[in-house]
Protein backbone atom coordinates (compact mmCIF):
# COMPACT_ATOMS: atom_id res chain seq x y z
CA UNK A 1 0.00 0.00 0.00
CA UNK A 2 1.25 3.48 -0.83
CA UNK A 3 0.44 6.05 1.88
CA UNK A 4 0.73 9.79 1.21
CA UNK A 5 1.33 11.97 4.30
CA UNK A 6 0.35 15.60 3.81
CA UNK A 7 1.39 18.19 6.38
CA UNK A 8 3.12 21.56 6.16
CA UNK A 9 5.18 20.65 9.22
CA UNK A 10 8.15 18.46 8.35
CA UNK A 11 8.40 17.51 12.03
CA UNK A 12 4.81 16.27 11.98
CA UNK A 13 5.32 14.31 8.76
CA UNK A 14 8.24 12.53 10.41
CA UNK A 15 6.21 11.86 13.56
CA UNK A 16 3.35 10.42 11.49
CA UNK A 17 5.76 8.19 9.57
CA UNK A 18 7.34 7.04 12.85
CA UNK A 19 3.89 6.26 14.26
CA UNK A 20 2.98 4.31 11.11
CA UNK A 21 6.15 2.23 11.44
CA UNK A 22 5.46 1.59 15.14
CA UNK A 23 1.87 0.66 14.29
CA UNK A 24 3.12 -2.04 11.96
CA UNK A 25 2.78 -0.22 8.64
CA UNK A 26 6.50 0.33 8.11
CA UNK A 27 6.68 -2.02 5.15
CA UNK A 28 4.29 0.15 3.15
CA UNK A 29 5.54 2.87 0.82
CA UNK A 30 5.38 6.24 2.57
CA UNK A 31 5.47 9.43 0.51
CA UNK A 32 5.17 13.07 1.62
CA UNK A 33 3.65 16.36 0.50
CA UNK A 34 3.93 19.75 2.23
CA UNK A 35 0.48 21.11 1.33
CA UNK A 36 -2.76 20.24 -0.40
CA UNK A 37 -1.66 21.54 -3.80
CA UNK A 38 1.49 19.40 -3.80
CA UNK A 39 -0.56 16.43 -2.62
CA UNK A 40 -3.10 16.87 -5.41
CA UNK A 41 -0.34 16.81 -8.02
CA UNK A 42 1.22 13.72 -6.43
CA UNK A 43 -2.11 11.91 -6.25
CA UNK A 44 -2.75 12.60 -9.94
CA UNK A 45 0.71 11.31 -10.83
CA UNK A 46 1.14 8.32 -8.56
CA UNK A 47 -2.30 7.26 -7.22
CA UNK A 48 -1.60 6.43 -3.56
CA UNK A 49 -3.91 3.99 -1.79
CA UNK A 50 -4.39 6.18 1.27
CA UNK A 51 -3.97 9.88 2.05
CA UNK A 52 -3.32 11.04 5.63
CA UNK A 53 -3.75 14.81 5.61
CA UNK A 54 -3.47 17.72 7.98
CA UNK A 55 -6.35 20.23 7.91
CA UNK A 56 -4.73 23.69 8.09
CA UNK A 57 -2.05 24.15 5.46
CA UNK A 58 -0.87 26.95 3.16
CA UNK A 59 -1.84 26.96 -0.55
CA UNK A 60 -4.55 24.31 -0.16
CA UNK A 61 -6.11 23.04 3.07
CA UNK A 62 -6.85 19.39 3.73
CA UNK A 63 -10.60 19.81 3.32
CA UNK A 64 -10.09 21.67 0.03
CA UNK A 65 -7.81 18.85 -1.11
CA UNK A 66 -10.53 16.31 -0.36
CA UNK A 67 -13.10 18.42 -2.25
CA UNK A 68 -10.71 18.77 -5.21
CA UNK A 69 -10.25 15.00 -5.31
CA UNK A 70 -14.02 14.55 -5.56
CA UNK A 71 -14.30 17.20 -8.27
CA UNK A 72 -11.63 15.42 -10.31
CA UNK A 73 -13.17 12.01 -9.60
CA UNK A 74 -9.94 10.83 -8.02
CA UNK A 75 -11.03 8.08 -5.66
CA UNK A 76 -8.57 7.49 -2.84
CA UNK A 77 -9.07 6.53 0.78
CA UNK A 78 -8.65 9.67 2.87
CA UNK A 79 -8.20 10.36 6.58
CA UNK A 80 -7.34 13.51 8.51
CA UNK A 81 -4.54 13.82 11.06
CA UNK A 82 -5.23 17.18 12.62
CA UNK A 83 -5.48 19.25 15.78
CA UNK A 84 -8.93 20.41 14.58
CA UNK A 85 -11.07 18.54 17.08
CA UNK A 86 -14.44 20.29 17.18
CA UNK A 87 -17.60 18.30 16.47
CA UNK A 88 -18.30 20.57 13.48
CA UNK A 89 -14.90 19.81 11.99
CA UNK A 90 -15.34 16.07 12.42
CA UNK A 91 -18.78 16.20 10.85
CA UNK A 92 -17.53 18.26 7.91
CA UNK A 93 -14.67 15.79 7.37
CA UNK A 94 -16.98 12.78 7.38
CA UNK A 95 -19.64 14.51 5.24
CA UNK A 96 -16.97 15.33 2.65
CA UNK A 97 -15.88 11.71 2.45
CA UNK A 98 -13.07 11.29 4.98
CA UNK A 99 -13.00 7.83 6.52
CA UNK A 100 -11.56 8.87 9.87
CA UNK A 101 -10.02 11.72 11.80
CA UNK A 102 -6.99 11.20 14.03
CA UNK A 103 -6.50 13.98 16.54
CA UNK A 104 -3.08 15.54 17.18
CA UNK A 105 -1.35 14.79 19.41
CA UNK A 106 -1.94 11.11 18.71
CA UNK A 107 -0.79 7.76 19.96
CA UNK A 108 0.42 4.84 17.88
CA UNK A 109 -2.80 3.05 18.80
CA UNK A 110 -4.83 5.70 16.97
CA UNK A 111 -3.11 4.71 13.72
CA UNK A 112 -3.43 0.99 14.47
CA UNK A 113 -7.16 1.38 15.01
CA UNK A 114 -7.83 3.57 11.96
CA UNK A 115 -5.66 1.72 9.46
CA UNK A 116 -6.40 -1.80 10.65
CA UNK A 117 -10.10 -1.11 10.08
CA UNK A 118 -9.26 0.00 6.53
CA UNK A 119 -7.23 -3.11 5.82
CA UNK A 120 -9.95 -5.40 7.22
Amino acid sequence: MKILIVDDSRAMRLIVMRALRQAGFGDHTLVEAADGAEALALIQDSAPDLVLSDWNMPKMSGIDLLRALHEKHLMVKFGFVTSEVTAETKQMALDTGALFLITKPFTVDAFKEALTCLAA
Partner: peptide
Protein backbone atom coordinates in the same frame (compact mmCIF):
# COMPACT_ATOMS: atom_id res chain seq x y z
CA UNK B 1 14.09 26.02 10.69
CA UNK B 2 13.53 22.68 12.46
CA UNK B 3 13.13 24.48 15.81
CA UNK B 4 10.58 26.91 14.34
CA UNK B 5 8.71 24.04 12.70
CA UNK B 6 8.56 22.03 15.94
CA UNK B 7 7.53 24.94 18.17
CA UNK B 8 4.97 26.15 15.62
CA UNK B 9 3.43 22.70 15.48
CA UNK B 10 3.26 22.66 19.27
CA UNK B 11 1.29 25.95 19.23
CA UNK B 12 -0.90 24.56 16.45
CA UNK B 13 -1.76 21.46 18.46
CA UNK B 14 -2.53 23.38 21.64
CA UNK B 15 -4.56 26.01 19.75
CA UNK B 16 -6.43 23.37 17.78
CA UNK B 17 -7.37 21.44 20.89
CA UNK B 18 -8.38 24.68 22.58
CA UNK B 19 -10.97 25.38 19.87
CA UNK B 20 -13.38 22.79 21.20
CA UNK B 21 -13.48 24.68 24.51
CA UNK B 22 -14.34 28.03 22.90
CA UNK B 23 -17.83 29.36 22.19
CA UNK B 24 -18.86 29.57 18.56
CA UNK B 25 -17.05 28.44 15.45
CA UNK B 26 -13.48 29.67 15.15
CA UNK B 27 -10.83 29.41 12.52
CA UNK B 28 -7.23 28.76 13.45
CA UNK B 29 -4.39 30.51 11.66
CA UNK B 30 -1.22 28.82 10.55
Amino acid sequence: SDVNDALGELANMIGGNLKSHLPGACTLSL
